[in-house]
Design a protein around this nucleic acid. Structure first.
Lengths: 207, 207, 207, 207
DNA sequence: CATGAATGAGCGTTCATTCAT
DNA sequence: GATGAATGAACGCTCATTCAT
């Protein structure tokens, strides 16, 4: 006889599922995860408190699902965009631009990524860090391709380069959120990439 | 009748004050701010629960004081180190190395800076974001000095460059904390700075 | 985003509401407001601690509601009783008798009125002093009616007379509670009213 | 061998003792007993927190001593005043006048008597209700004297009459404290006594 | 599937009291 | 006697989660 206590798997989609996810992003961005009450999220999604638990195991899992979903969406959009060119340098530009554009366009998501993601991986039961690693790997591949084509210095670690790019872009977003000053995604991405590609030092005259 | 509601200013230092601060850093790094109970911090500091409130207004202020104090210590140590050379490039190397070294040496502090600082400035009553800005400004000054001496490209925004440096270093620390793999601060700093200074692109032959 | 901070109005009645109110009167009469724990009240009402907060904003409001409700019930019962006669003297007798009878019958309520009401109006957020004033006004009207009919001395202030009546009755109740000796409501009311109506002085022979 | 754990009796007087008592009356009148912190009282008296415990067993005892002392002072002043005449009616007038005058002159004390005394006898460990009974007995004696001289109706209970007088005066004070309107002690006492002595009813024409 | 009333564990903070100096 | 830093028990309130309807 099977253990009938096993819980049926929760529905991974559906209209209400999405509404709850959207509501969670909104409320968590507004108040932070700890101060976002499940009741708030439910109210914002237009469902009863208990309904939330028909779609998610618990509060932590809502945030986890929201972050995962955001990363996945972003990752797949980037992958799609990368298909339009084979020039690794152009691809890096595309990544940088989309990164900034996406987060500037979805401020709530940006707030959550800035404030909650690091929390998540340590204190919420391990959000699938997976999707973040995926994204970084995407960048690393592009860099290695660039190295293969002789466009990027071979002695540079693709891992370090990818982290530098991500970290720099992230810091620009962070600064935008803190200062509140509007930024131009195109220009911001260009500035960061310019530095990453060419460095800030003046070219040694004829070394 | 004297107004007995005014609170005497709390002691800013002293043996117990320091013990509580240290305990807070340890416990918060371990469990996260929300799950760190005041009772945990008190026990860890070897004082009674109520004693904490002889030194801090409330739980939030403990974390705030810990972060502020960490930033201040770091900032002043960096300033001191910068005095040993006047070469801006060398100074940037010093900053990068000390940044990584300090956080690798104080893992708990690194965890808090990674996981709690962004939270703090948004959801706890504004930790003095001040000390962070101070640090960024320090880097900007060095960069501007480098531009003045013709060592750094003048068309680069010192603000963007400083944020890129900080973001990149931060991401390396973050990656270290997540993966758990030990890193060599010296080498890490060198790698990041190499990229920031020279870029990742191969030198266009003789364009 | 909807403002999820606005609180839905709490239910003003219902079975649980009443049970909590009754429990509060019992516990507060027994231990005093300050020593009455919310947990005590909840246990006494047979509900969980948190349930109390589904019906009342906070501990203070429970007491407030209890006092208000008691005054209102009493006030309306007295009003009803007054309709049975139009003789102001008889009406005063009715008021006095019901006042003593009601509180003797509900000892817990008497205790609360004696010990908590004055507290409430000064230190808890103003219980609706309103219902007390209502009661005093009722007495004043009866007295004025008596003056209109030439039954009560016109030079007497209706306010002072009403306060004297209330104060005297209150003191009898207070004395009963303190000494613990049983009293006969009918007789007590009669004695007090006799004094209020005729005074204690012997009639000056033929002045 | 005697039990050396016995506590030495606390000093019942002295400059600090009085200062603490005065401070307690002020603070308790202002904030209520429960919200009056021992630290407030100590600060107001200009002594250290711990010093309070050199003179009083605990917080409750401070209030108890304050109330007792007030009643005793009042009682003895009244007794002295009563010696100036032997006419019981005049004596009642004196009592009424002094009662109102004293409390109007010492508003803080009036507040405490209104709000804290009833509390005391039930919830603070029995303040010496004694001093209150003393006061009531004083009035009863005067009334009995009046009855002996044929000035006061013999069928009236001296206990009830005394309680009526006290209750009525008390209610006038209470009304003053609540409404905040200034009152004339002389006139107030006269009005109350007029009612107590002659009643509010018009004299039956020639019954 | 959906509801939302009910639950109760959990914790930050206060403050009367003590005692080493 | 006097001090005031330190103590730690006590409790109001919140909110994630459950479950009868």
């Amino acid at each position: 006889m099977k253990n009938t206590d096993e819980k049926a798997p929760l529905p991974r989609g559906g209209e209400k599922y999405d509404r709850i996810l959207e509501a969670a992003i909104e409320v968590v961005a507004e108040k932070g995860f700890q101060h976002a009450r499940v009741a708030d999220i439910a109210a914002n999604a237009g469902v009863a408190d208990g309904t939330v638990y028909l779609y998610f195991d618990n509060k932590n899992h809502i945030l986890r699902a929201a972050i995962d979903s955001a990363f996945e969406q972003f990752s797949s959009r980037v992958r799609a965009a990368l298909a339009t060119t084979h020039d690794p340098i152009e691809q890096l530009k595309t990544i940088a631009r989309m990164h900034v554009e996406t987060l500037v366009a979805r401020r709530n998501l940006a707030i959550i990524l800035q404030t909650q993601v690091r929390q998540s991986s340590k204190f919420l039961e391990e959000f699938s860090h997976h999707s973040f690693v995926d994204y970084i790997n995407l960048v690393r591949e592009v860099i290695r391709a660039g190295q293969g084509e002789g466009l990027i210095r071979p002695e540079v670690s693709d891992r370090v380069a990818a982290l530098c790019l991500f970290g720099a872009l992230d810091e620009m977003i962070s600064s935008w959120l803190f200062t509140g000053k509007p930024i131009d995604p195109e220009q911001t991405a260009t500035q960061v990439l310019d530095i990453l590609l060419k460095g800030i030092r003046t070219r040694p005259s004829h070394a």
